[in-house]
Design a protein around this nucleic acid. Structure first.
Length: 424
DNA sequence: TCTGGGGTCCTAGGACCC
DNA sequence: TCTGGGGTCCTAGGACCC
């Protein structure tokens, strides 16, 4: 069984922890530049203020009802998040920090009869020790736990579903668009087909789902059937991209200004990369005009440059960012947004070796032989990477009794691995 | 005047290799 | 020079998440 614990109206709740007089009063938190609303207390929601709404649109309601408005303070929220995660993970056998305000908990080996009672304990402790109210959904898969969590938030703060009857009962009333993995595009398509509830989605033919929604859609469908195929990620994964981007409070319309802006972003990205202990192999920059203002001429472009040597060095990255900007900047436009992104991040060979180490001795040596053989066939290029990845996946699939993986891997690897197993 | 800032995963297709 | 079945690596683009 999995649980999803989620801090209610997280940013707004954080502000309340430091200002308890706000309890019971409407609170909203704004994005950068105070552009739009990114968090609302229940009272603010009740006033009809919606998520992502531009501040100026909601301003009338806010003024009329004396709503308390905060500019975002990510340092504070990050700090509160750490506290909350520490408490939550101390109360379950396994945990995965999913986002700033969400934590998956794993309860394998836990007495299921006590789960509901334990969930109450988690809520009480988190509230008492951090001041943040949380909702908890419990279910056999992560996707179902997400759904249960959403229902919990509207009710008593805790929702547990276990039997297939309980699952279907929940899914029948659950809008398909609220599922984890269904966004605007997929929802539109499903609505056109008359698929409105999660239960209806669960009953769609697997072939259709795979074809039109890729393997991710199929995974979602399996999860709704109670077959867990999204495992808990207990150690936080190393980042694959690092990005710094902003919308500007006012327009940027000279090259000089823009160069300063992206240089700043490059600096921040390099800093983040060093903190993560990674180096980047490529850097991308992008610039956009204001897409909302249809009267202004529009231009947007991006450029990716490979770094000759993987690096997290500010000066080197800066050099290539300037080069890229020069090639895409067009004068005469009013720019509204820009960003710098580092990709191709890696920390030496650590990841591959981890995968390899997770195998037992026998398999390691068999794998090495197979790799040697394949390397011989393939010439100097080598094929180290995919077989090792595959070996790890198989290993995990066996450990977790996870039905999805084997089926979805490219057949050539399956055959190979099977011959390795046969040989043992 | 005013509309977030981070990320992830998957697929298709092209260049290239043996 | 052609044919072919494997592969790899890389990029672009589209979907999604909070």
């Amino acid at each position: 069984m999995f649980a999803l614990a989620d801090g209610n109206n997280f940013y707004a709740s954080c502000e309340r922890v430091f200002n308890p007089s706000l309890n019971g009063k409407p609170v909203v938190v704004l994005s950068n530049n105070d552009g739009s609303i990114i968090a609302r207390s229940n009272e603010a929601k009740a006033l009809g203020i919606s998520m992502g709404q531009p501040y100026y649109q909601a301003k009338k309601t806010i003024d009329e009802h004396g709503v308390n408005v905060f500019s975002s303070n990510y340092e504070l929220y990050g700090d509160m998040s750490n506290r909350m995660m520490t408490v939550l993970s101390s109360l379950a056998p396994e945990s995965e920090i999913y986002s700033i305000d969400e934590c998956f908990l794993g309860f394998s080996g836990f007495d299921e009869g006590r789960l509901s009672e334990h969930a109450h304990l988690i809520r009480e402790r988190t509230l008492k020790w951090t001041g943040i109210p949380v909702s908890i959904g419990l279910a056999p898969t992560k996707t179902l736990a997400k759904a249960a969590n959403k229902v919990a938030k509207k009710n008593e703060g805790i929702k547990l579903i276990r039997t297939s009857d309980q699952i279907d009962e929940l899914l029948e009333k659950y809008p398909v668009e609220d599922l984890w993995g269904i966004g605007r595009k997929y929802n539109k398509r499903l609505q056109e087909m008359g698929i409105k509830t999660a239960l209806q989605f669960k009953q769609l033919p697997e072939g259709w789902v795979k074809k039109h929604m890729t393997i991710s859609g199929l995974r979602l469908q399996y999860e709704l059937k109670g077959i867990s195929c999204i495992p808990l990620e207990k150690v936080s994964a190393t980042k694959k991209a690092i990005c710094t981007s902003r919308s500007f409070g006012s327009y940027v319309s000279t090259y000089k200004e823009m160069e300063e802006v992206v240089a700043n972003f490059a600096f921040k990205c390099a800093e983040k990369a060093r903190k993560e202990n990674t180096v980047a192999r490529a850097v991308t920059i992008f610039i956009h005009t204001n897409g909302f203002n249809t009267t202004l001429p529009q231009y947007s472009n991006s450029r990716t440059l490979r770094l000759p040597v993987a690096t997290a060095n500010t000066a080197e990255i800066l050099h290539y960012v300037r080069l890229a900007l020069r090639s895409i900047y067009r004068p005469g436009y009013s720019y509204k947004k820009a960003g710098v992104m580092l990709t191709g991040l890696h920390t030496k060979d650590a990841i591959q070796m981890d995968l390899f180490d997770s195998l037992d001795r026998n398999r390691q040596s068999l794998l090495m032989e197979t790799i040697d053989e394949l390397n011989g066939k393939m010439g100097k290029k080598g094929v180290f990477d995919p077989p090792v990845k595959f070996a790890l996946q198989t290993h995990l699939a066996e450990q977790k009794n996870w039905p999805m993986q084997r089926k979805f891997l490219s057949p050539c690897y399956t055959t190979r691995w099977e011959s390795v197993l046969k040989a043992s």
